[in-house]
Design a protein around this nucleic acid. Structure first.
Lengths: 232, 232
DNA sequence: TCTTTTATTCAACGATGAATGAAAAAACGC
DNA sequence: GCGTTTTTTCATTCATCGTTGAATAAAAGA
């Protein structure tokens, strides 16, 4: 268990919390850029301008440091999104539109990306890397992310009931792949479009992403567009 | 430059090519599972059952070995897809449907995943990891993947002309995020659905993915569903 | 103030990383 | 077969990894 928060039975020395924060921020940034194995504890310490031994002192191990970095913003992020989702359902008396559910799920990404705190953009990159390397912090996915995703899928069922169960999961899967990649800002689009399109222009991406996936979800879940049937 | 194929001015010793192949296969598998920095050259050599020095002898460096592993199947894969795309356009006299373009782009994934050669499934995982860590082999993306993606986007313009340029890029971006994640088989869906849905059932995923994205593309590119406009 | 707890520094530990160069072995052209 | 080239082995290069323990400093409790 990552000791992200030391038990404060006695008041912590003022600079200790600051040290932990500095290490976490450095870890977030470097892990986001180069992944778990691409970064050394010493690099993180250098970036945070602290002694290398402090990373282990405060977080126990490199693995726990990674988990702590991923977890740090996950709590806040998931709580916000869950509140948005609950409100979205309540506002619609239990029958929200697909688009409103997608907005509730997605809008916190945009908000934080534009919040002025660059740490959020790093964290989204970290999330993208962890998404294709779940072995780095499986417990964070299991305990923090998965439960919220299940609520999202329940909301999708409220918005578009009656489809076969597997379709909700596959549709979510497509959606999450696109969403996570979009907010990872890999810069690929910039190159492909010769600069006409910028990965960092997340507002434009968001404005297109929401209707794009609302339509995709609806066509599949309503059965308006049937599965191909030729894949077997 | 990765010497994926040694210049055969003299016939190579039979076992030399076999050694290279064994190293490449081991590298493909291990890099796919744990990423570039998560694997050591010694592990690859052990998996391939060869001396560790041979990896450097045949490929020059760990980085070139990674590039070679990513490149190995890329040539064949991209050529097939390009042929499919060209045929799809020609068959429709220059005005293909969105769905047919998506099928041409995507179907080779499914074919190889079901080909019985498990190396392809590893390679798709490798692709997914490289997709969020393009710094591992930037030249492969630039030289092999990007040109084909540009052709795909041109085909989308034939199928649904007249939309603002950026929309094609963003739509492709969403699509590629979902596609790559789907064929990476992370197993996340299995867990989320309590086993009701299997990541490895790529035929089912493909059958839903094609209509899902055909509809998403169409709604955005035709302007039937306008961008949100609230993201700024 | 004195004791206890918490935080930080510093110097190491053993293990392992990628890569290399020289020597040995195997296949080749002739 | 013989000389040449290609491939393989082996020992070793230097650098660095994550982590630890002892010593020191700073804060907090009494």
């Amino acid at each position: 268990m990552a000791e992200a928060v030391q038990k404060p039975k006695r008041a912590a020395r003022p600079s200790a919390d600051a040290t932990r924060t500095r290490i976490l921020e450095a870890a977030e940034k470097l892990f986001a850029d180069r992944g778990f194995h691409g970064v050394t504890v010493r690099e993180i310490a250098r970036e945070a301008d602290v002694d290398p031994a402090l990373a282990n002192y405060h977080f126990g191990s490199k693995e726990q440091l990674f988990s702590s970095a991923l977890l740090a913003r996950a709590e806040e992020f998931m709580a916000e999104r869950e509140a948005a989702l609950t409100a979205c359902i309540a506002d619609a008396d239990g029958t929200p539109t697909l688009e409103s559910v997608i907005v509730a799920y997605t809008h916190p990404y945009l908000e934080h990306a534009q919040s002025g705190d660059p740490g959020w953009r790093s964290w989204f990159k970290l999330l993208a890397k962890a998404n294709t390397s779940p072995e780095w912090a499986p417990e964070v996915f299991r305990d923090r992310f998965d439960p919220f995703v299940r609520k999202f899928i329940e909301a999708m069922k409220l918005a578009a009931p009656g489809a076969p169960d597997e379709r909700y999961y596959w549709c979510y899967h497509f959606f999450s792949g696109a969403l996570v990649l979009t907010f990872a800002e890999t810069g690929r689009m910039d190159r492909l479009s010769d600069g006409k399109c910028r990965s960092g222009d997340l507002a434009s991406g968001y404005d297109l992403l929401v209707p794009f996936f609302a339509e995709g979800f609806e066509s599949i879940l309503s059965g308006r567009r049937p599965p191909l049937g030729g894949g077997a």
